[in-house]
Nucleic acid binder design. Structure first.
Lengths: 207, 207
DNA sequence: ATCGTTTTTAAACAATTGTTTAAAATAAGT
DNA sequence: ACTTATTTTAAACAATTGTTTAAAAACGAT
């Protein structure tokens, strides 16, 4: 233990911020070093290369993303409540990290290797028991019978995309940040109702 | 008229392909020139700079994206049929240009200026009369009352995201291209049913 | 064929890139 | 205090970047 925050961690933090906003090839190692206030060579001292550092950041971002889901799945709540909570948490989380979705997708497409499951994301999701829970609900008839990949797609699409498409939407509809934020707040409720109605069609339509 | 296809167009085509897959700062002018088979200097002869060329490609991509929507809106069909057609056309279009959504979003975030509406996308959408059509349907009660921005978000989220998240989904769920394609085909129907049910709640639930 | 214009090229430009080397500064162990 | 190991720096490295310059090639019109 040398510093309050180790240099290594400070570099990671700065790299995360820079990579997130500018992407891998959109920034330079010197830019990162400068934002930490250290020499360029120190980057290669702690991490072997720019690419290695990037992989680390990307991996961590993916981990955060999965973590926010796992946290909800572990809750002891009925499936429908979990669904609501998942959407709320996801919107809340992404509002704090709006660059995350685009960063992840752009990052994954940049790296051809993409050894994505060295962190065993699927395993961590499985351990929450959410898949069995859905399977049971589907057999009971309370939940619509869908492949879990499609269920995942529905959730991520409707939570991530509204956040990451801000520039597109503001550009096309010529609205400012405030109006966009207002749309987003409304959208959160829309998504919740739409997904619940679709996934659990037999329960109460209007509470 | 000099060539079958002008050099200018050949450069645009090559630049489009390269920019789409690698992004603005992910590629070099020499890479583009090489893929056309011409000298680097010719890029700056026809287009003034790499940035100018990129803006051109991005603008064209956005235009394609809006065009595919306008084409559907102009059809003389009931609103619900247009909805189905829009989703089908969008999936069909994006299957042919799967890099487009990510390219647009990454591109918009790279350019701080983003004078997005010099092509007057909103005007082109307005001219189709789709907004009035929805407003009328909403007053009649056949369509759920939502801000059109939220409606747009629902459509794009559920059409674009499934395509652009291929690497993420394949990575997490450890599936190959074939399995992913199968999920996508199913997802197209899922999205159609979910959106129709949500936007037009009073019509037939199960045909 | 000849002249002027357009298109294309080779070469060079200065700036920036990621990375390495070798030395300096700092910390730790004895 | 002295020695060793760790951390940090300045400087240099070769390669690559976007762009420009000036000359060559191709073309069009007369």
């Amino acid at each position: 233990m040398k510093k309050d925050v180790s240099t290594e961690q400070k570099i990671k933090d700065a790299a995360r911020k820079v990579f997130m906003t500018k992407g891998f090839s959109g920034c330079t190692t010197r830019e990162i070093a400068k934002s930490v206030g250290i020499n360029v060579a120190l980057l290669n001292y702690y991490f072997r290369s720019k690419g290695k550092l990037f992989e680390l950041i990307l991996e961590a971002a993916l981990s955060d993303f999965v973590d926010s889901m796992v946290e909800v799945f572990k809750q002891d709540l009925p499936l429908e409540s979990k669904t609501r909570m998942l959407i709320d948490k996801e919107f809340e989380f992404l509002r704090k990290h709006p660059e995350l979705p685009l960063f992840i997708h752009a990052g994954l497409n940049q790296e051809s290797d993409a050894e994505l499951d060295q962190s065993n994301f699927l395993g961590r999701l499985h351990k929450t028991g959410i898949f069995e829970e859905c399977e049971k609900a589907q057999e009971e008839g309370s939940m619509r019978k869908l492949n879990m990949i499609n269920v995942t797609l529905l959730f991520i699409s409707n939570c991530h995309f509204p956040i990451m498409s801000k520039k597109l939407i503001c550009g096309i509809y010529q609205i400012d940040d405030n109006e966009h934020e207002a749309r987003l707040i409304e959208h959160q409720e829309i998504v919740k109702e739409m997904l619940i109605n679709y996934l659990f069609p037999n329960t109460n339509k209007h509470a």
